[in-house]
Simulated scan of single mutants.
Amino acid sequence: MKVTRSFWLGLGSGLILSAMLTLLFSPQQKPSDVQLNPQTALPKNESTKEPDSPPPVQPIESDQKESLPPDPQVSPQIDRDFVIPKGASAEQIADLLFAQELIKDKEAFLAFTRQMRAERRFRAGTFKLSVGLSEEEVIFRLLK
């Protein structure tokens, strides 16, 4: 296929046209509600209703807060210091991480380590790690 100027012109105009059609016929609003220039907008008919606003949020009473279970996605990250001793192998590091509950699966950690060819790239030192990180993210942080 020969790529010419007319090819690029057709491609560009097709993308622009599809973007304009998407704006006009998006499912979020009716085509009649689209206003191209807000300064020249006409007043809406009384027959057109505004969408209902969501009800106001009621604050939770203090006794209700205690009965709700904690949301795992909102829980704060707990940073811990993790020390790699001098001369430690990847298997010893996996054992230490598992013992401190920084990883859930030693075998998955070692598999990622082998896959990334990072078995001998770990250096001794102290690292800040958070509980709940994936094995892959733990490896990336230990290699920094």
Rank of each mutant, 00 (worst) to 15 (best):
N37Y: 09
T113H: 07
L42H: 04
E101G: 08
D52W: 06
T48R: 02
K30N: 03
R120I: 02
E107L: 10
V131I: 13
I103W: 09
E66C: 02
L68W: 08
P85T: 14
A124Q: 06
E107I: 13
P27I: 01
A99W: 11
V83H: 05
R123T: 14
A94D: 11
T126S: 04
R121D: 15
E119S: 13
S75C: 07
F122S: 06
F127A: 04
A124M: 04
S67T: 15
P85V: 11
M20D: 00
P54H: 11
D81C: 03
R120W: 03
L42V: 08
A108N: 12
R123A: 12
F109P: 07
F82T: 02
F82A: 04
P54I: 15
S89K: 10
S62E: 10
K44G: 11
P43R: 02
A41R: 07
L42F: 00
A108D: 14
D81T: 07
L97Q: 07
K104H: 08
L102S: 05
I60K: 12
T113S: 12
V131E: 10
Q64K: 09
A118H: 07
P76S: 13
D79F: 11
R121K: 15
R117V: 10
S130A: 12
D81G: 03
P38S: 00
S47W: 01
A108I: 15
D95M: 07
V34P: 01
V57I: 15
Q39N: 00
V34F: 01
E91N: 13
F112L: 10
Q64Y: 04
F127P: 06
S62F: 07
M116I: 11
A118Y: 08
Q73M: 14
L96W: 12
